[in-house]
Design a protein around this nucleic acid. Structure first.
Length: 588
RNA sequence: GGGGGCGUGGUGUAGCGGUUAACACGUCGGCCUGUCAAGCCGAAGAUCGCGGGUUCGAUCCCCGUCGCUCCCGCCA
């Protein structure tokens, strides 16, 4: 090795030792007769002192050194002179007196400062990702990611899980996200698909008798990106045989709690994860992925406004359309402009209008365009239901349930951001269970699964499949943290007949089902154990544990929102010969 | 596919219908033997993303376009 110690390792007890360090020049400070070099490697920083009186050769080399040069230094560990210690560095009590300095590589001045937390234009960071990765923030994040994955492997290994790799080149299926396709050279006109997840394969591993499987699995989905979505991402893919829902929930809860306590930079809000039904989550928070770090819950007030003189509410109540409200503490002094902005925001999220009532902080008087339509008793009942206090602002939406939920959920998050509730540095997990098996509404004349077609309906709801399919609840469960879906899974269907039936309900003919999923259906004829699984999103969880706002910050080489790689310039054109090999003609 | 934000020396920002385009950091040179966000002196460095339009005059206003980003749709 070109070094004997790492740059973060040396302490007072190493004084007197001769050591060799190698790494990057974080900073050079030239005092004339003595040059200080902060030598950085992955492990930390050490101050190297090059004294013209101690070694003139080393000194003349040190004079040529610039930021980000790669150097090797041999010297003696010394205590720093009294008063010269640097309490900001773990190695701040010592320094290395250089006897030998060698430049291993020179470096151009980097396009941005490595040693500064300063925000840099994202495209520049992505183009020079290898330099961005030198910076403390990303190094720290990659370390957290590594530790998280190691924790997962150890945890699951101790519990009898086998880590098994599944193919990256697999079969395209019509359901779900758009596939990334790989053309076959050997079979003209045919394509592999990169897996959106190893869903089918892990179920087949259960049929194979593996019983407890996991994989740190790369998944690919050709859909538009978001802060929490990249075209390729990593899931902890798991599947277990002979389990029931709560076995999986308990296992994952223990895994997540242990992992966060071991590696997270952001603390856990609670070691108990509340379990909400889908219905409860949507009624209370307006969404199936609630941020439960704060309240601001939706309150049903349809009954209180049904008989009011405000016609919109009364008519909606008669038409079975709900009226719901959220109470925002301390915003009762919002100006007309602020309220107009909020209404604008509500409209952008699907509202036709936004009603509001503001309670005066001192005299408790209720102001707002709709206030005059309510009797005093009605207003009292309303404020009691909402536990509203003087100085609060009440926001009200009345419409189709889905719209009301969407509007108030968006407002809830917006107000939480404004009030700082959504910036709280803690991780608040909850489970959402008892999802409907099918999504509301029908597309192209058939039902659509709300999770995927292998999710089992609740056993007691199977009779409803024919009579009232939308009333059927499933064995699906999601793990949610701070408003992000961080894991999703289900108990699967393991009976061929039921699987057949579900496939046909979601629009597969017998022939298509056989063509697309024949291997699954056939496998289920050879003794499939009851099984279920889950797939936590590693990128999202690590981003949350690092307090990062997007998953790019926890991936070594992420893509832009346009799904490009600015460093390597991918995707790129290929030569005609390659296209010919693949029997591909590109449309102009 | 749609909507919002951003784009000014290498970096981060300021600015404004007419400026010598400002500041900080960085870079380069000089001085300095105890600095660690070193200090002091000096210097270089900007077709104001690109194209078009309005105007006597555009970095600034308008349109288009490109790039980055956030959101909606989409993501079984």
């Amino acid at each position: 090795m070109l070094k004997t110690v790492h740059a973060g390792a040396l302490r007072l007890e190493n004084v007197g030792q001769t050591v060799t360090l190698a790494g990057w020049v974080n900073k050079r400070r030239d005092m004339g007769g003595v040059i200080f070099i902060d030598l950085r490697d992955r492990d930390g920083k050490t101050q190297v002192v090059v004294d013209s009186g101690r070694n003139p050769t080393a000194f003349s080399i040190a004079e040529q050194i610039r930021t980000e040069y790669v150097i090797q230094v041999t010297g003696v560990v010394s205590p720093r002179p009294q008063g010269q210690q640097n309490p900001n560095l773990p190695t701040g009590d010592i320094e290395v007196l250089a006897d030998q300095v060698e430049i291993l590589a020179t470096a151009k001045t980097p396009p941005f400062l490595i040693d500064r937390e300063e925000a840099v234009d994202e495209s520049l960071r992505l183009k020079y990702r290898y330099l961005d990765l030198r910076r403390e923030r990303l190094q720290r994040n990659l370390i957290v990611r590594h530790k998280a994955i190691k924790f997962i492997r150890d945890f699951l290994d101790e519990r009898g899980f086998l880590e098994i790799e599944t193919p990256i080149l697999f079969k395209s299926t019509p359901e779900g996200a758009r596939d990334y396709l790989v053309p076959s050279r050997v079979h003209p006109g045919k394509f592999y698909a990169l897996p959106q997840s190893p869903q089918q394969l892990k179920q087949l591993l259960m049929v194979a008798g593996i019983e407890r499987y996991f994989q740190i699995a790369r998944c690919f989905r050709d859909e538009d990106l978001r802060a929490d979505r990249q075209p390729e991402f990593t899931q902890l893919d798991m599947e277990i045989s002979f389990v029931e829902r709560d076995d999986i929930l308990d296992l994952i809860e223990a895994l997540i709690v242990g992992m966060i306590q071991a590696v997270s930079l952001v603390p856990l809000a609670s070691t108990q994860f509340p379990r909400l039904s889908y219905r409860e989550a949507t009624e209370r928070y307006g969404t199936d992925r609630p941020d439960i770090r704060f309240g601001l819950e939706l309150q049903e007030i349809t009954d209180l406004v049904a008989n009011s003189a405000f016609r919109v509410f009364a008519e909606n109540a008669a038409a079975n359309k709900p009226t719901k409200a959220i109470c925002i503490p301390g915003c009762g002094d919002y100006s007309r402009k602020q309220l107009t902005d909020l209404e604008e925001f509500a409209r952008a999220n699907g509202a036709k209008a936004l009603a509001w009532l503001a309670i005066h902080p001192e005299n408790g008087e209720i102001r707002g365009p709709i206030a005059k339509f309510f009797t005093v008793d009605q207003l009292i009942a309303l404020t009691e239901r909402l536990q509203a206090n003087p100085g609060d602002l009440i926001l009200i939406s009345s419409d189709e349930k889905a719209i009301v939920h969407n509007v108030l959920s968006s407002l809830r998050m917006e107000m939480a951001r404004r009030l700082g509730y959504a910036q709280k540095k803690e991780l608040a997990f909850c489970w959402v269970v008892d999802f409907p098996l099918f999504e509301e509404g029908e597309e192209e004349g058939h039902l659509a699964p709300s999770h995927h077609m292998f999710t089992a309906p609740k056993r007691e709801h199977i009779p409803l499949l024919d009579s009232d399919p939308h009333a059927v609840l499933s064995e699906q469960y999601d793990l949610v943290c701070n408003g992000f879906e961080v894991a999703g899974g289900s108990i699967r269907i393991h009976e061929r007949e039921l699987q057949n039936k579900i496939m046909q309900m979601i629009g597969f003919s017998v022939e298509t089902a056989k063509e697309q999923f024949g291997h699954m259906l056939e496998a289920f004829e050879y003794g499939a154990p009851p099984h279920g699984g889950i797939a936590p999103g590693i990128d999202r969880i690590v981003a949350l544990m690092c307090g990062e706002p997007n998953i790019r910050e926890v991936m070594a080489f992420p893509k832009t929102a346009q799904a490009t790689d600015l460093m390597a310039d991918a995707p790129s054109e290929v030569v005609q010969r390659q296209l010919d090999d693949l029997h591909i003609a590109v449309k102009s």
